[in-house]
Design a protein around this nucleic acid. Structure first.
Lengths: 201, 201
DNA sequence: GCGAATTTTCAACTCGTTTTGAAAGTTCTG
DNA sequence: CAGAACTTTCAAAACGAGTTGAAAATTCGC
């Protein structure tokens, strides 16, 4: 599945300055990219950037470090970190000997996405489903007298139903991917991935 | 999988006025809901609303009808409809005897979501993957002299790699779900759905 | 080809979201 | 318990995505 890729940088030892520069650029581009991507998917840019910063750092950082790195205000950092903690993808840690609060991002990518999926489902999908069911209830079981009405009603109910059925299926899959039997589903998804790519020609 | 649901409205014939009212409310709530949902997922509210309007109407509508229903400007309607057409989930149709252009939404929910998936993948996922690969190239194959650098580099590359691998898998799955062997994958997804819900306890 | 009907474009504007920063609150330390 | 270190809050400012509407462009029928 993984294509062999050529090493892009020389195999000869590099000096520390070089490595530092490359690392810094790599981090910065990753953070920018993540922020941009978040924006496309309805996640505030800064929130995604803070998360990316913590993720790519791979170590706990305190508020000031984040403020300096991203050049954002203290208030913004505070609020954003809180949201990330609410989402469950960043944790507070207390480093002994330091009074400041530190934050670290979940490093397991699968766990990360499961968490995000669970949160978004809970907050955004489930309420939609509920409202959609109420929508259906409005016209469900109405018995029209003339055939024109009947036609309309039938179409309408069919449309609502197919949408609802589909979304319920999506919700089911999410729920399955989300419950703590995570390893199982990781396997399942990988299988699905290879299965689908093979049949794509 | 589908739970039996009780009819919520009486089984006795209803008059036309009643039905009209219920239908209108159902449509309006559906449109509002869809718009709200879109907004959560990075789709402009109006764009989602226009799509919802066409979808739930189940018949071609012209620009003016849409303008009236959603109370938006002509310019807005024009641009939004174009985006929907670009996305491939709305088509232009010409009704004989009418000079106006009409628009109709894809009615097959699966096809609809496959199209959306394909578009978003192409526009938002693939570019991210590309940039992420470039990101990795920056630090890939660097050979640090001291073990501290080595440590850092190793961690960094691991993080980038796990993220990249994961996203590539997601892209693969999307591609599989997306290619025109759609029926197959519909079956696959349903299977996954029931499989995962069964194991969830 | 001309004029009416219709659609598209785009600069200005609007409005909701995000960010700021200073003030208030909290928690820790001596 | 007082004072310092640090965090959170929130009203106001900045910002930008989305919207408008009138003018330009296009299309169609005669």
């Amino acid at each position: 599945m993984a294509k062999p890729r050529p090493d892009t940088n020389s195999g000869t030892p590099n000096n520390a300055a070089q490595i530092g520069t490359q690392l810094r650029e790599s981090r910065e581009r990753f953070v920018a990219l993540w922020g941009q991507m978040g924006a496309h998917w309805g996640i505030p840019r800064t929130m995604a950037e803070v998360h990316a910063t913590l993720f790519i750092a791979g170590r706990p950082m305190n508020t000031d470090e984040i403020i300096d790195f991203l050049e954002i205000s203290r208030g913004n950092a505070s609020m954003t970190l809180r949201k990330l903690i609410d989402w469950g993808i960043v944790q507070r840690v207390h480093l002994r000997g330091d009074r400041k609060e530190y934050f670290q991002a979940e490093q397991d990518v699968w766990k990360l996405f499961r968490t995000i999926l669970r949160e978004r489902k809970k907050r955004e999908v489930d309420p939609v489903l509920e409202e959609l069911r109420q929508c259906r209830a409005l016209t469900d079981g109405l018995a029209p007298r003339n055939s024109d009405d009947q036609q309309q009603l039938l179409g309408h109910n069919n449309r609502l139903n197919s949408m609802l059925t589909f979304l319920e299926m999506v919700a089911d899959i999410s729920a399955g991917l989300t419950n703590d039997a995570g390893a199982e589903l990781q396997r399942a998804a990988s299988t699905l991935s290879s299965a689908t790519t093979e049949q794509a020609s």
